[in-house]
Simulated scan of single mutants.
Amino acid sequence: TLAWAVLTLWPGPATSAAPRRRAVLATLALAGTAGLAILPAALPLDPVPAGAATTVVAAIQGNVPRARASLADQVSDYQTVTQNHVAATDKLAQEVSDGKLPKPDLVIWPENSTEIDPTVYPPVYDQIASAAKAIGTPILVGANLQNPQRNAGVLWLPGTGPEPHYYVKRQLVPFGEYIPFRSIISKITSLTQLQPVDYTPGRSNYVFHLGQIRLGDVICYEVGFDNLVRSDVQDGANLLSMQTNDATFERDGQTGETGQQLAMARIRAVEHDRAVVVASTTGYSAIIAPDGQLITSSGTWQQAELEARVPLVSYTTLADRVGPWPEYVIVVLTVAALAYAAIRQQAGRRRTTPVN
């Protein structure tokens, strides 16, 4: 915006030097704007304390059937997805039992790893309970809860079952998890029946307490909203997770959406100096270090079990302390530049309008 304003509206005599001067000023404006954009990344990260506590975390990518299920086969398809995550967790448990891997302190399953509410459907409840028993570790399960319909992260404890408190997705996907202006749109098209019941959004964040772990969770594209992730850190989260299901976007071979989400998760790691566990049904899944580096990651359309030791950091970063104010300042400056440009342009037109 600043560069455009300089190039088009900067006053000056009509000389051969004027275009060159405008170009120089535009370059300076662009450089200044870019500097504001990259300043947070240029600032040194708070170093992870040498004596920081650590924990072993695991991400399970169970994979899903590649072909789209018909309405008649959806229940069977959902059961297969859950069973895939059980099988991958059992495989991880066997590797732990064989001494190939350390026992994780927490296992993360992705969004929609159970599309059927396990609290009301005993077979799914038993499947998850068996996986938790095999690994002997709490599992954060991505569950579709009913009555009302909610997209949730439910902590499942071995031998105990789901905790009564869980995280419910707050930022729902329009036309995916709810239909805005449903009553009006339904009069125009019947496609609203593809999402017959709107999901109910969560009202607040929830930080899970597991020993020394304070886990803050976001679901799918919530990772793109600054305030949602920041609220977990401000409430004491020393570890972050993102549960996601990108299968719908990847069935035609594209990976842009899941790659974008992974990049966002890496930005969140740097922004808050926290390790981030990304669990996806079909990939990419990853465990990310506080500096944004990938400790381990998976491909797409494959079953994977990821495990890594990560630091648990409790201090707040500059981004946490400043909050959204840099964004507000940039928006205000942009609006002011647009207004100034419009005023100058209008004034220029008046000067050049011939008088009869």
Rank of each mutant, 00 (worst) to 15 (best):
T160K: 15
I38P: 01
S130L: 12
W301H: 09
A72H: 07
A275C: 05
G62P: 02
G216Q: 06
L145M: 08
P104R: 06
A88R: 04
A34W: 15
A143G: 05
W4R: 08
R150Y: 09
P354Q: 02
L36H: 04
P324I: 14
L239A: 01
F249K: 04
T248K: 05
V81D: 02
A17P: 03
L155E: 01
A308R: 03
A134H: 03
V277N: 01
F249H: 05
V310W: 03
N245I: 02
I287L: 06
G202E: 03
S298L: 05
L228P: 01
D291Y: 10
I135F: 08
W109S: 02
T189R: 02
Q193G: 00
V141K: 02
Q171W: 11
E257A: 12
A53D: 13
L172E: 02
A26C: 13
I185M: 13
V313W: 03
G35M: 04
P118K: 07
L172P: 04
V335L: 15
P326Q: 04
D90R: 14
D232M: 13
V355H: 06
R182A: 09
W325G: 00
G35I: 02
G283E: 06
P324T: 08
L140P: 02
A269C: 12
M264F: 14
T316E: 15
V332S: 09
T282S: 12
I184K: 11
A347M: 09
Q195D: 05
K169Y: 03
L210N: 07
I267L: 15
E111W: 08
T352Y: 10
G283S: 08
Q243I: 03
A58T: 00
L333C: 11
A26Q: 09
E115S: 11
V276L: 10
D232Q: 14
L28Q: 04
S186I: 02
D46A: 14
A247Y: 06
R66W: 15
S204D: 14
K187C: 04
P65M: 13
I213C: 05
V276E: 01
S97C: 00
I188Y: 12
V331A: 13
R251L: 09
A53I: 04
G153W: 03
P354V: 00
V278Y: 00
D217S: 14
I135N: 00
V64Q: 13
E222C: 06
V124M: 14
R203S: 14
A279F: 04
A336V: 12
V57M: 05
P162G: 06
P118F: 09
N205R: 12
R349G: 10
